[in-house]
C-alpha cells in the first residue's frame, strides 16, 4: 500500500471513518432503547415489565417467608403526601396480598400524579408480580383531598432461595402538565 507511486485514495478512508462517526453517534442514542429492552427482559436495575400480571394461580410455598418492604417518596417539588399503610409485610411466595398506599393533595389545585416503581435487589423484580397497582395509571386527586390506592401482588414461588427481603419503592411524580386524556377526564368529574 505504501509503495503506491500515485496519490493514494484518501476519500475512501475518510468516507468510511465518517460513516463510523455517524454510526457511533446513532449507536449512542440506540443505547437508550437497547438499555430499556435489556432491563425489562432481565429485570436489571429493579425495572418492571410494567404490565399487569395474571391473577395468581400458583400454589403457596408455606415453607418460606419473604419480608417485603415498602418505601415511598415524592419527587423534588411535588407537594403531595404519599406513604404506605404498612411499612412491610411478611408473606409466603405465591400468597396474594393487598397493600394500600395513602396519598393526599394538600394544594388548592386538582392534580394528576404517577408513581414509578423500583425493586431492590434488581433480581427480585422478575418475581414480584402485580395483579393490580395504582402505578399502572396516572392518579388524579382533587384539591385538598386524600385517597387510598390499592396494590395487589404476589411473589412468584420460583423466587431464588437467597432472597429474604424485597424492597419495593415508589417515587411519586407530578404529571399534571403531561396528563393522559383518561386522567384528565377523571379529574374533570367531581371526585366521589
Amino acid at each position: 500500500m505504501a509503495e503506491q507511486p500515485t496519490k493514494p485514495d484518501n476519500t475512501r478512508i475518510i468516507r468510511r471513518l465518517l460513516l463510523t462517526v455517524v454510526g457511533m453517534f446513532a449507536f449512542g442514542f440506540a443505547l437508550v432503547p437497547l438499555y430499556n429492552v435489556f432491563c425489562d427482559i432481565t429485570g436489571f436495575n429493579g425495572r418492571f415489565t410494567d404490565g399487569q400480571a395474571a391473577a395468581n394461580t400458583r400454589s403457596v410455598d408455606t415453607n418460606r417467608t419473604v419480608n417485603v418492604q415498602f418505601i415511598t417518596r415524592v419527587n423534588k417539588g411535588m407537594p403531595w403526601g404519599f406513604e404506605p399503610e404498612v411499612s412491610s409485610v411478611r408473606i409466603h411466595p405465591g400468597e396474594t396480598k393487598v397493600v394500600n398506599f395513602l396519598a393526599n393533595n394538600p394544594t388548592g389545585q386538582n392534580m394528576i400524579a404517577q408513581a414509578i416503581p423500583s425493586v431492590a435487589p434488581g433480581e427480585a423484580s422478575l418475581y414480584l408480580n402485580k395483579v393490580e397497582c395504582f402505578c399502572f395509571n396516572q392518579q388524579p386527586l382533587a384539591a385538598e383531598s386524600k385517597t387510598a390506592m390499592p396494590m395487589q401482588f404476589y411473589l412468584d414461588p420460583d423466587i431464588p432461595e437467597h432472597i429474604h427481603t424485597v424492597t419495593l419503592s415508589y417515587t411519586m411524580y407530578d404529571m399534571t402538565e403531561n396528563a393522559t386524556p383518561d386522567a384528565l377526564a377523571a379529574i374533570a368529574q367531581p371526585v366521589n
Binding site: T20, V21, F25, F27, Q114, I116
Partner: peptide, 29 residues
C-alpha cells in the same frame, strides 16, 4: 472515532432533557 460520537450523543441528550422537555434521564418521563 468510536467513542467521541457517543460523548456527543450523551451531551446532546443532556441538552434536550434540560431545555427541550425530553426525558432520557428523567424517571418522571
Amino acid at each position: 472515532i468510536a467513542v467521541m460520537p457517543v460523548l456527543a450523543g450523551a451531551v446532546t441528550m443532556v441538552l434536550t432533557d434540560k431545555y427541550f422537555g425530553t426525558s432520557f434521564f428523567d424517571a418522571a418521563g
